[in-house]
Amino acid sequence: MQANLGIAGIIDRPDMEDFPIGSIVKTPSGRIGTVVKHRGAQSRHDLFQRIIIEFDEPFGDSVALQPHLLKMIRRSEASS
């Protein structure tokens, strides 16, 4: 018997490893950036993984987002 994972309560969410460093991603606001760093849970009160994304414009602008919020545009060639 095959169970429907959605009904069973199992959610298939992306993980940090699904976004290798150097990959190009799209944020919820529509900005395109490059994955530069992975950051794990910072404390016992903050259990979320975050991916650091840098943007080309304005130079040096960055954001830390949870993996499930990102959409892959192009995987890093180094990850292949």
Rank of each mutant, 00 (worst) to 15 (best):
Q2R: 07
A3R: 06
N4Y: 08
N4A: 07
L5P: 07
L5R: 07
L5Y: 07
G6C: 05
I7R: 13
A8W: 02
A8C: 12
A8G: 07
G9H: 00
I10K: 01
I11Q: 12
R13Q: 12
R13G: 03
P14R: 02
D15T: 13
D15P: 00
D15R: 15
D15K: 15
M16I: 06
D18Y: 03
F19C: 09
P20M: 09
G22E: 02
S23P: 07
V25W: 01
V25P: 01
T27L: 04
P28C: 04
G30T: 00
G30C: 02
R31Y: 06
I32D: 03
T34R: 09
T34G: 04
V35F: 05
V36A: 06
H38A: 10
R39Y: 09
G40N: 15
A41L: 11
Q42C: 10
Q42L: 14
S43C: 10
R44Y: 12
H45N: 15
L47W: 10
F48E: 15
Q49H: 14
Q49F: 13
R50T: 14
I51L: 05
I52R: 02
E54F: 07
E57N: 13
P58C: 12
P58I: 11
P58N: 11
F59R: 00
G60I: 03
G60P: 00
G60E: 05
D61V: 00
D61E: 12
S62R: 07
V63H: 01
Q66H: 07
P67V: 04
H68G: 04
L69C: 13
L70W: 06
L70Y: 08
K71T: 13
K71Y: 08
K71G: 08
K71C: 05
R74I: 04
R74V: 09
E77K: 01
A78F: 08
S79R: 12
S79K: 15
S79V: 10
S80T: 07
